[in-house]
């Protein structure tokens, strides 16, 4: 019996990196999966891998910052898979720049990708969770919600830090709105994690910065996507039944 046996889990931004690790971890614990990503090819690759292990997977390609896309995706999930037990608002990312040079387009892109997606997907899933008085939502904040010294020294990442601080505020307030209705919502705040997307930047910082993440983090290393997935699994599962409205750092001590 897995820790997610037969639960239906939706993971956004699932095609690569941390999202893919979360899908693998939840699926490995018996969850049925509905995976969303804008990268259709990546999504199908991951789905094929997971189905090969006997995991049930529905895929839906699309941009979860678009209201109509999110509404259609969750309607399809409800129809084909039934009610959602777990939502992992994982999608995120940034266009970094020095704040005095940052374009409004890049600011909006980052805020929209991290915050609007979490808002839209949470709004889409809550009515059925509240009606069944069950459900767990896990959002992705970041260690950068308190500022990111290496990113500030490297490219500047104020929009990203603002968005991830926004997630922390979001989950606290939503928790207060829905706790008495039996739904839990929490966030995980990853520190520096090695993915295909982050690897080049961390390699560059190791060359150019005295306080690169691998030197500044008390555990003296970059984390792995699997380590984030383990925390998401814990918060999503019934083992966390008394945990809501909190953000858990998975950041090697930084």
């Amino acid at each position: 019996m897995g820790r997610m046996q037969d639960r239906l889990a939706v993971v956004t931004g699932a095609a690569n990196g941390i999202g893919a690790a979360i899908a693998r971890r939840l699926g490995g614990e018996g969850a049925r999966l509905a995976l969303l990503d804008i990268d259709a090819a990546g999504l199908e690759r991951l789905a094929a891998e997971l189905r090969g292990q006997g995991i049930q997977v529905l895929t839906q390609a699309g941009d979860v910052t678009e209201e109509s896309v999110v509404q259609a995706a969750f309607a399809r999930i409800a129809e084909e898979c039934g009610p959602v037990d777990v939502l992992v608002n994982n999608v995120g990312g940034a266009r970094n720049a020095r704040i005095w040079e940052m374009s409004v387009e890049d600011w909006d892109f980052t805020i929209r990708l991290n915050l609007r997606s979490a808002f839209l997907c949470t709004r889409a899933v809550l009515p059925s969770m509240m009606a069944r008085r069950a459900g767990s939502i896990v959002c992705m904040s970041s260690g950068s919600r308190n500022g990111t010294p290496w990113s500030a020294a490297d490219t500047g990442a104020a929009a990203y830090s603002a968005a991830k601080a926004g997630i922390h505020g979001f989950i606290r307030d939503v928790a207060l709105e829905v706790s008495h209705l039996g739904v839990r919502i929490n966030a995980v705040a990853p520190g520096p994690i090695e993915t295909d997307r982050t690897r080049p930047a961390f390699a560059r910082m190791e060359q150019t910065l005295e306080l690169s993440p691998n030197r500044l983090v008390p555990m003296r290393r970059i984390g792995q996507p699997r380590e984030i997935a383990d925390a998401v699994l814990f918060l999503a599962s019934d083992e966390a039944s008394y945990i809501t409205g909190t953000t858990l750092d998975v950041a090697g001590g930084r």
């Binding site: 792995q224 380590e227 383990d230 925390a231 858990l248 950041a251 001590g253 930084r254």
Partner: peptide, 14 residues
């Protein structure tokens, strides 16, 4: 929890 250190896990029903 191999990458978790120096942090707080709050278990308080919100």
């Amino acid at each position: 929890a191999s990458f978790i250190t120096g942090t707080e896990l709050v278990i308080d029903g919100g």
